[in-house]
Design a protein around this nucleic acid. Sequence first.
DNA 1: ATATTTGTTATATACATACTATAACACAAT
DNA 2: ATTGTGTTATAGTATGTATATAACAAATAT
Lengths: 126, 126
Amino acid sequence: MIVTIDFNSDEAFYIQLRNQIIIGIACAKIREGDNLPSVRELAEDIGINMHTVNKAYTILKQEGYVKLDRRKGAVISVDADKLKAINEIMEDMKVILAKAICKNISCEEIHKLVSNIYSEYSPDNC
Amino acid sequence: MIVTIDFNSDEAFYIQLRNQIIIGIACAKIREGDNLPSVRELAEDIGINMHTVNKAYTILKQEGYVKLDRRKGAVISVDADKLKAINEIMEDMKVILAKAICKNISCEEIHKLVSNIYSEYSPDNC
DNA sequence: ATATTTGTTATATACATACTATAACACAAT
DNA sequence: ATTGTGTTATAGTATGTATATAACAAATAT
């Protein structure tokens, strides 16, 4: 599991971290029970401040992807509150799909796109 | 076409505006050639500053949803650069679908969700 | 026992972004 | 001439992001 920061991106560091870790879990590069590097270690590795990593971990905890343990550090533990997740995803999707409709992208095209991304995330492919 | 601001949201006002206008176009509540209220008028209506509305309009122009005309104001004009739009949507989708996979939401469930939102945006339903 | 490593909390600083407030400008319509 | 467009400029405040140091409590390792 390699995490990198794009220092030129307009996306906040802690958001970049959060996203990459979520993608890592989706790809099964990191699995239930695995632990992430400590905030200090990861911060050192990628060259950013400890508090920025801590912010990412805290958000991942709030969103139900990890549990923070004083002994082991941050441990992957996905709470599968599916209903809550679906509602959140629906909200995110609304704006994206409105954009798609404006740009004349059909529902079928989105279906294909979704399927492609799903298979990209298959453990075989990453 | 009614635009409202959630003053308690953590989303920036100009992003809220942008999103609502994109959704308005998707729903055909506002159509190609229609013009949005002037920055001053809309700002007055919803109780925010002129420059914030201007920022939303400028972004909508950059993203290819409106053209700004000194005479008519902001006129809906969607440039359908489909390829560019698809690439952008793919990027947005990657994180959302990673999230979905983590939360055990299947590809089929996402397909249904997408179809539902598409039909919600049908002019009949809004 | 002591030292080390965890997450956690506190304070302070620097910088960028978001929002507001006034003001003025160029251009077109009335 | 006056009014209404978008546009630009400047300034101020508030919030968010990222950094730097420092310290704490709890668990582990030596």
